[in-house]
Design a protein around this nucleic acid. Structure first.
Length: 692
DNA sequence: GCAAGGTC
């Protein structure tokens, strides 16, 4: 009886695979830390075990983080790098579970990383060198039927092309990231009392550069004036507005001419137009779309959305969230999910309506993912969900229901008026068919505007013509959600890592604020790299790595060649930076000193308006309080009490909605809360308790 | 206390 070991990428996959392959759908669970299963399937015995994402990672023997170049690297168990007891036990038990089998099956996600995760387990944990004992199973939706088919049709050997491509990607990112980070970090050492960690990477640095370019576009923006013309029209005793047919008038002389030509007191209704427009059913959620929508609807940051979605997934309430697919294949079992959802009274009516139409044909989006379908609810329900989880689950559920619905429709009405020689337009719109908007409520409701019903040939009274001067606006700053979208557009980062990378930029203090601004340090990092390694600033590096990976995958170029070329280039860059170390260090450390100085600034002083309100700790008493920097110059008097240790107080970019004073974040042993620093704030319904 | 990529 041949014995197989199937290796999944994650516990959920191992569970699904073992249930699908067991003839009685009751696999026997083994393993204390690693969810693993013994499966009976015909005349073979199968053990299903699982990795936990990457179990191995690259490291270097040069552990001092101020020494470079680092050109040596090797794969080591992940737990040896970050001292993770759980991963250590995981690897140990996984090794035992897989000993003594005849065949190994890599059933990790069918993509580059999945191929590499399985490969590393095979070579490092099980010491497999004979690829005749190895198979690759190709899975995407993890439904019973698909898993059974994939097991029958698994291919012999491994997808070594994908593996090598993946390994090269890891090496290139590692070498560039570690070396450039160390070079910059080292340069500032001699100028600072305590070390400050700087980082550079193939994804984070181009992302920072996007923000710098936007910042420059905003700073150099010159507003242009333009004029808007409106006519106030009296209809049945009520005043209504019509806009000049050209939205923006570019010159003042043109405005004067128009006003003269429109000097008549009568408006003729020249035409009444009615046009119907479809509002299409939205695509199913992939992770990025979900993150964007949750930001729009709830104000959740992308990383918060991912972490909530993760919890929902681990509670089996939604499908796998780290997907870039917008497709809902029939395999997931539409009807069963819908029927389960209908048990929840909030969705009963919507489901009944969908089922009553007979055919279940959800909208499919454009984007795809080799390893997962779009995000959908499983139909399960749990009592103990917090409000964030409830919100996100409701959003995912309603989006899923919406994809089975019909397009909505609106009518756009335009009353075209002529005043003298000039045409003005009164525009309104109304939803005429709710379609999917009904189940997706309250998450999307297009604006509606009613206008009076007129007939062609009607004559109306003009009350007056209003001219308003306006100015063009600079480009908007990015927020975490729009930045995420831009990264996706440029193809940098992956669905699972983009939000983390944005967090890294905040953590390093390269950027600040919800409406993102680049700090002086962020600018300095970019200008330094522009001098020494412009390639890492652009998305071009990602494209090059990708094209090299494709060549490696199809055997057009060898892994070693790509790595050697990268090393040579890197050595050159590092030599240049090394030669200019003092120069570079001075530039960067100046920005760091500014950041450290501003770190305790909680906002502008609300009393004198000139100084900064700062958190300081008294040398004498050890007490924490807030003080305006102008107090030291005898130009202000403001000092304010703040919570004391063991609580911590951090600056935020928020201000109080009732008094406009700065708001600080207070981190207690229990949970963080936000405090307006104004001791006599009128909005304070619950004054904070005095801490001991 | 360094990257980006998996996953809890």
């Amino acid at each position: 009886m041949p014995k197989y070991l199937i290796i999944a990428e994650k516990p959920e996959a191992a569970r699904r695979i073992s249930e699908a392959l067991d003839s009685k759908a009751k696999p026997k669970k083994i393993g204390r830390v690693v969810p693993s299963f013994v499966v009976k399937n015909g005349d073979c015995e199968i053990i299903v075990t699982t990795a936990l994402g990457h179990l191995y990672e690259l490291t270097t023997t040069i552990s001092d983080r101020t020494i470079y170049p680092v050109l040596d690297y090797k794969w080591v168990p992940k737990h040896t790098v970050e001292r993770n007891k759980r991963l250590e036990e995981w690897l140990e038990e996984m090794g035992k579970i897989g000993s003594g089998v005849d065949y190994y099956v890599n059933a990790c996600d069918y993509d580059i990383e999945g191929s590499l995760i399985g490969y590393n387990v095979l070579r490092f944990l099980y010491g497999v060198s004979d690829y005749r004992r190895v198979f690759r199973m190709k899975l995407s939706t993890l439904t019973n039927r698909e898993i059974q088919e994939a097991f029958k049709r698994m291919s012999p050997g491994l997808d070594l092309g994908l593996v090598k491509a993946g390994e090269t990607r890891h090496i290139i990112d590692f070498l560039y990231g570690i070396n450039l980070s160390r070079a910059l970090t080292r340069s500032v050492l001699r100028f600072l009392r305590t070390p400050y960690v700087l980082s550079v990477g193939r994804v984070q640095t181009p992302t920072l550069n996007i923000l710098v370019e936007r910042e420059i576009a905003i700073e150099t923006f010159i507003p242009d004036p333009y004029w808007v013309l409106r006519a106030e029209i009296v209809i049945n005793g009520e005043t209504h507005e019509a806009l000049y047919e050209v939205e923006k008038v570019q010159s003042l002389s043109e405005v004067k001419r128009l006003v003269e030509e429109a000097s008549s007191k009568k408006a003729f209704v020249e035409k009444v137009e009615r046009r119907f427009e479809k509002i299409s059913v939205p695509e199913p959620f992939d992770l990025t779309t979900l993150q964007r929508e949750a930001y729009r609807v709830f104000g959740f940051t992308p990383s918060r959305t991912l972490s909530i979605a993760e919890t929902l997934y681990l509670n089996a309430l939604i499908s796998y969230p780290r997907t870039s697919s917008q497709k809902l294949p029939p395999d997931i079992g539409y009807r069963e999910i819908l029927e389960k959802l209908s048990e929840n009274s909030s969705y009963t009516k919507a489901v009944e309506k969908i089922l009553s139409r007979g055919v279940l044909n959800p909208k499919q989006g454009r984007k795809d993912d080799p390893a997962h379908p779009a995000i959908y609810p499983t139909g399960e329900w749990k009592e103990e969900l917090n409000s964030d989880q409830l919100k996100l689950l409701d959003l995912v559920t309603k989006r899923f229901l919406a994809t089975f619905e019909e397009d909505a429709e609106k009518v756009i009405c335009r009353n075209i008026l002529r005043i003298g020689n000039v045409r003005f337009i009164m525009k309104g719109s109304m939803i005429t068919k709710k379609g999917w908007l009904e189940v997706y409520s309250p998450y999307y409701s297009p604006e509606e505007k009613t206008i009076p019903l007129l007939k062609e040939g009607d004559i109306l009274t003009v009350k007056k013509i209003i001219v308003e001067e306006k100015f063009t606006n600079p480009p908007r700053r990015y927020n975490p959600a729009s930045l995420l979208r831009e990264m996706e557009k440029l193809g940098i980062g992956t669905k699972a890592t983009r939000s983390e990378i944005i967090e890294t930029l905040y953590k390093r203090r390269y950027i600040i604020g919800k409406s993102i601004s680049v700090t002086e340090l962020g600018f300095s990092i970019v200008s330094t790299l522009r001098r020494f390694s412009p390639k890492i600033l652009s998305a071009e590096m990602t494209r090059m790595v990708e094209s090299d990976m494709e060549k490696i995958e199809s055997g057009l170029i060898e892994e070693e060649k790509v790595v050697d070329a990268a090393k040579r280039e890197l050595i050159e860059i590092l030599r240049e930076v090394g030669n200019r170390e003092v120069d570079v260090g001075k530039h960067l450390s100046n920005s760091i000193i500014t950041i450290l100085r501003n770190r305790n600034v909680i906002g502008k002083c609300p009393v004198c308006g000139k100084g900064d309100l700062k958190i300081i700790v008294s040398r004498k008493t050890g007490k924490r309080f807030g003080i305006c920097t102008n107090v030291f110059r005898n130009r202000c008097m403001l000092t304010i009490p703040l919570p004391q240790n063991p609580n911590k107080v951090y600056a935020t970019d928020k201000t109080c909605s009732s008094c406009g004073w700065p708001i600080v974040k207070v981190v207690t042993r229990k949970r963080p809360w936000y405090l307006c620093v104004n001791p006599s704030c009128p909005g304070k319904t619950n004054p904070p308790k005095k801490s001991a």
